[in-house]
């Protein structure tokens, strides 16, 4: 159990701010991509990579590393931002997002980018990868942990619940799933399009330990990460209440910011808010 110090929290908050700035810049440069869901996930992803996980940028395939699978693969910019910030590749490479020949594909490609653990983008599939990785960890008696992040629209996929069933069945207490509960998908609010609510009860019924937090409060995120380590015999789901587009006032909780990139003037406006 790691102590949650003011110092540690200051570090992850600063990293999340840098990541958000880079997300805005790379998307502005690319001219397309998924802005809202990258920003809602930034705080959790920052805490994972700068507080919780054991990874080595110099040795991305180190067998004992912790693993993070971005099941909501369209939020690739948040993953690229954290990997660059962590030193897996130069920050400058972020400018090549979504361009022909770039390793930074519109959706994460594990064969092209060091540190990307799974090729995702087709919603629902990443959590199953995470189950497989956690299962392999158990088989090999390794102590690494596996983390995944799902969208609250993504959990409408039946496959997510097949994976949830398997994770509990195989008692994968080395697995942790975050649901980025920002309340929005493409066609509108999740309750209006196809309600996945209540989310905590569903995971509980499937045999998971369930926590609910504010997904932008770094202390709460860290406390959840600590608490999951004390759970044995079952996986932990963290339902993280978040705001889509968090950090840029004109994007926050706006459905139209799901799959569009900021234009040059919007990039300026956004960066001015992320000082």
């Amino acid at each position: 159990m790691k102590e949650i110090t003011e110092e540690a929290v200051a570090i992850t908050i600063e990293k999340a701010r840098q990541m958000r700035r880079n997300i805005i810049k790379m998307l502005g440069q690319a001219g397309s991509g998924h802005t809202g869901g990258s920003l809602s996930a930034s705080d959790i992803v920052a805490c994972l990579y700068f507080w919780e996980m054991n990874v080595d940028p110099a040795n991305p395939h180190w067998p004992d590393r912790d693993r993070f699978v971005l099941s909501k693969g369209h939020a690739a910019p948040v993953l690229y931002a954290v990997l660059a910030e962590k030193g897996f590749f130069p920050i400058d490479n972020l400018n090549s997002l979504r361009t022909l020949g770039s390793p930074l594909q519109g959706h994460p490609d594990m064969r092209k980018v060091p540190g990307v653990e799974a090729s995702t983008g087709s919603l629902g599939q990443g959590i199953s990868w995470a189950v497989g990785m956690a299962l392999a960890g158990k088989m090999d008696k390794k102590s690494y942990r596996v983390y995944t992040m799902l969208g609250d629209g993504e959990i409408e996929e039946g496959m997510v619940w097949e994976a949830a069933m398997a994770a509990a069945h195989y008692k994968l207490d080395n697995l942790m799933a975050f649901v980025d509960h920002n309340g929005l998908q493409i066609d509108g609010r999740v309750q209006e399009v196809m309600s996945p609510l209540p989310i905590p009860d569903k995971f509980r019924a499937f045999g998971w330990e369930v926590l609910e937090i504010d997904g932008h409060d770094h202390k709460q995120i860290m406390a959840a990460l600590n608490s999951a380590r004390t759970v044995s015999g079952r996986p932990t789901a963290v339902i993280a209440h978040t705001i889509k587009g968090k950090g840029c006032s004109f994007m926050e909780d706006r459905v139209e910011w799901h799959g569009v990139a900021p234009k040059p003037d919007e990039v300026k406006k956004a960066l001015a808010e992320l000082l």
């Binding site: 690319a30 001219g31 397309s32 991509g33 693969g73 979504r98 594909q105 519109g106 959706h107 490609d109 090729s119 995702t120 983008g121 087709s122």
Partner: peptide, 8 residues
Amino acid sequence: VGEDGGSH
């Protein structure tokens, strides 16, 4: 499809 890439 373009920029979304090979997965799509």
